[in-house]
Nucleic acid binder design. Sequence first.
DNA 1: AAAAATAAGTGTTTTTTATACACTTATTAA
DNA 2: TTAATAAGTGTATAAAAAACACTTATTTTT
Lengths: 228, 228
Amino acid sequence: MTVYNKEYRELQQIKLAVDCIIFGFNDNKLELLLIHRGFEPEKGKWSLIGGFVGENEDLDKAANRVLYKLSGLEDIYMEQVKAFGKADRDSSGHVVSITYSAMILKSEYNEDQVSNYNAKWFPIEELPELVFDHRDMVESAIRRLRRRVRNFPIAFNLLPAKFTLPQLQMLYEGILNESIDKRNFRRKVLQMKYLVRLEEKDMSESRKGAYFYRFDEALYKVEKNFNL
Amino acid sequence: MTVYNKEYRELQQIKLAVDCIIFGFNDNKLELLLIHRGFEPEKGKWSLIGGFVGENEDLDKAANRVLYKLSGLEDIYMEQVKAFGKADRDSSGHVVSITYSAMILKSEYNEDQVSNYNAKWFPIEELPELVFDHRDMVESAIRRLRRRVRNFPIAFNLLPAKFTLPQLQMLYEGILNESIDKRNFRRKVLQMKYLVRLEEKDMSESRKGAYFYRFDEALYKVEKNFNL
DNA sequence: AAAAATAAGTGTTTTTTATACACTTATTAA
DNA sequence: TTAATAAGTGTATAAAAAACACTTATTTTT
């Protein structure tokens, strides 16, 4: 008795796609990159950045290819979120989509390339109407991000290599959508030895200036306890 | 400029499957239901319970159908774990598989039906060699289970409707693979009002007898804080 | 040159949560 | 009757989280 039933394999016309939930941070708000859908069905709505998985292409690779094509960015930190598999989720047929979340530094991605795709950033509190079940996808990715950002040093992907503690705090406040006590926040940050203070200060945001810090990957590998 | 590229859709020969990681609890150990693979490739190894997703079938439904076919069980608590999508993960072709974890009460499932499939329970510490990437699947499901079992009342799916606190504690010790202080454990349990003590005692395991408890779904909905 | 304005930076106390730890009780079998 | 067994119970300590307000460095304004 076989478990994988041959008959299904021949008949199956299910398509497999990936959709990327691309987070950015700007103006102290968490933002999402969406593209304007210029064709039917659902013409005029906004959509996540997605595409079909290629023949003999790894799922992770597919997500990275799609992201690259639309943002010009490579080597981006991406995590699989979950599979969306309601048979009628896409009105054009049976398409199962695996979502990935990516965090990109807006200042480093190629605006021109993105604009070719009618892409636009939206603060997560002000999203337009999205196609299909993309709203659900976004919500599950945000929930996942909020969960993970407390226990893993992933939010640094949304900041430049050198950042200040006020910047980092505002990022956390933006992601978690809550205000955080400055002293408690800083105490926690400072006891993580892999967040190292540089001599240089950022003088652009205040008169006093705020010290720059950087995240030291190698030091983190030694002592992987992260908690914010 | 379309994002979903039509050409891919026509060519795509990727197959979509679900694999179920079925947990049971027996003899104070967490167990997994596996089936013996009687055909090539990988003949003789053991495998998760899986199958292809049907045409116009919801992913969740597919997982439930596969589970039903192999265990005879319906209305089982299942959670999606993750998608496995390396292009070469299955030596028979490009098959992407979405894993689901299910928790079943061994005493309620149909042994005869299962034996038709050469299915067998294995303690998670003593798993045989598994096909393809099923070992990775199992490991990620166990990690997920250990994470979720602390914050959600899901472990009760592995126990009968009436259970004792010693039983519950042993279940947690089995899942987490660590011993837990009895007094601390009971204190936490007893402050969850939706775990209600019955008048009846289980006299089968001790002379003194242990009170039966039950998980009250309705009460839980009111006060959803769970922590063990 | 002094004063005002601005954001960065700093410690302590209180509350909550987690952990460690040992004896009594109910019942049955010897 | 008493010996054996697992169930059941409370307190003290340690660790983590949360609450809370002033000082400092620098620039701009007067």
